[in-house]
C-alpha cells in the first residue's frame, strides 16, 4: 500500500483560500530562502581564502542604500501579505450569518456534538456539503482545540466561554478531527472524524436521527431525553421548564417583572450601569449562570444564579431555545 500524502485534502471553501495564501507565503519563503542559502554558499565558495582570482577591491563595509533596500523591500512584501492574511482571517472568523450551527462540547477526552434538530454525536461530526457551518465551542474541563486540517480551521475550546468557528465544507468525504491543545493523558486519543455528506443525504441522515448512533443519552450530563426526536431548541424548552425558568420568564402572570427573553438573542441590551451589550451566546450563558453580572436597565436582579446547576449540554439547549424565540432556528439572523 502506497499511502504517502504530502498535503492534506482541501475540503472547504475557506481551506482553498488559506491554501492559496499558504503557498504564496511558501513561494516568498522559497525565493528569499533560496537567495540566502545559495547566496551564502556561492559567496563562501567564491571568496574562499585561497582563491586569489577574485576581485576584492572596493569592498565597502556599509552602504545606506543597500541597507534601506533590504529593509524596505521585505517590509513592503510583509505588509502586503499581512493585509491579505488579515483580510482572509477576518472574513473567516468574524461573525457570519446564514449558517448551520453545531454546538461542540469538549471534555477529557472526547468531543460531543449537538445538531440543531437534536441529533447528538460523539467524536464524529456529520455535516452537509456546500453550506456555511458555525461550530460553537466550549469545554467542560481544560482547554482543548477543535481542529479539522482538511478545512484549515481550528479553534480552542475554552472552559467558561464560547468560541465560534465558521467554514463551508465543499467535498463529501471523511476527514480527520483532532484535539490540538494538549489536554492531558489521552490527548492523542481525543480524535474523531468529520463526515461531509451531500445535502440530500445529510437531510436524510438528520431525519433518521443520525443513524442511531447518537440518540442515546450520553455520559455528558442530563439534558432533555429523546435527543433525535426533539430539536435542540425543543430540548431547550423542556430544560427551560424543568429548571422552572417559566415561573417568571415568558409567563404573563408572573409576579415579578422580568426582561423579555424573546428579544435577547441578537438584540442590543441596555444595562443598568449604562453600558450596552450584544445579546450573544456569551451573554445568555452568563445571564443564566450569573444573572447579576449584567443587569437589564429598568429591572432588578431577582434571578438566582444557576452556576453549577446546569450542564454545558443544557446550556447549549437553552441557548438554542432562546435563539428560536427570537426567530432564529440556528442560522443567524
Amino acid at each position: 500500500m502506497w499511502n504517502f500524502p504530502l498535503v492534506p485534502p482541501t475540503a472547504s471553501k475557506e481551506g482553498a483560500d488559506i491554501s492559496l495564501l499558504y503557498w504564496a507565503i511558501t513561494l516568498l519563503a522559497v525565493v528569499f530562502g533560496g537567495i540566502v542559502l545559495f547566496g551564502v554558499i556561492y559567496l563562501a565558495v567564491r571568496y574562499r581564502a585561497d582563491n586569489n582570482a577574485v576581485d576584492r577591491s572596493n569592498a565597502t563595509e556599509s552602504d545606506l542604500r543597500v541597507e534601506l533596500a533590504w529593509t524596505i523591500i521585505p517590509l513592503i512584501l510583509a505588509l502586503v501579505i499581512f493585509g491579505w492574511a488579515t483580510k482572509l482571517y477576518a472574513d473567516i472568523y468574524a461573525p457570519r450569518e446564514g449558517y448551520y450551527e453545531v454546538f461542540v462540547i469538549g471534555k477529557q477526552w472526547m468531543w460531543h456534538c449537538q445538531h440543531p434538530n437534536g441529533v447528538r454525536e460523539n467524536n464524529i461530526l456529520t455535516l452537509p456539503a456546500g453550506r456555511l457551518v458555525k461550530v460553537s465551542l466550549i469545554s467542560q474541563d481544560v482547554i482543548h482545540a477543535f481542529s479539522i486540517p482538511a478545512f484549515r480551521v481550528k479553534r480552542d475550546a475554552v472552559p467558561g466561554r464560547y468560541n465560534a468557528m465558521y467554514f463551508t465544507p465543499t467535498k463529501p468525504g471523511e476527514y480527520h478531527l483532532f484535539c490540538t491543545e494538549y489536554c492531558g493523558t489521552k490527548h492523542s486519543e481525543m480524535i474523531g472524524k468529520v463526515v461531509v455528506l451531500p445535502e440530500d443525504e445529510f437531510q436524510a441522515w438528520l431525519e433518521k436521527g443520525g443513524q442511531g448512533l447518537a440518540t442515546a443519552t450520553t455520559s455528558m450530563g442530563g439534558g432533555a431525553a429523546g435527543g433525535g426526536t426533539l430539536t435542540l431548541a425543543q430540548q431547550g424548552e423542556q430544560t427551560f421548564k424543568a429548571l422552572g425558568c417559566n415561573a417568571c420568564h415568558l409567563n404573563p402572570n408572573s409576579a415579578v417583572k422580568v426582561p423579555d427573553i424573546t428579544k435577547t438573542w441578537g438584540g442590543e441590551i441596555k444595562l443598568a450601569d449604562g453600558r450596552t451589550v450584544k445579546g450573544d451566546e456569551a451573554y445568555i450563558r452568563e445571564s443564566i449562570l450569573n444573572p447579576g453580572a449584567k443587569i437589564h436597565a429598568g429591572y432588578q436582579n431577582l434571578m438566582p444564579p444557576y452556576q453549577g446547576q446546569v450542564s454545558e449540554e443544557q446550556l447549549v439547549q437553552l441557548i438554542a431555545y432562546i435563539k428560536s424565540l427570537a426567530g432564529d432556528s440556528g442560522g443567524g439572523k
Binding site: 499558504y22 507565503i25 501579505i81 499581512f82 488579515t86 482572509l88 486540517p149 481550528k154 490540538t180
Partner: peptide, 19 residues
C-alpha cells in the same frame, strides 16, 4: 525565520498552530 511568516499570517497561523 521564513516559516515564521506562515505563523505571523493569522489565516495560516490558525491552521498551523499546535501542529
Amino acid at each position: 525565520g521564513l516559516t515564521g511568516l506562515h505563523l505571523a499570517a493569522m489565516a495560516t497561523n490558525v491552521h498551523l498552530t499546535d501542529t
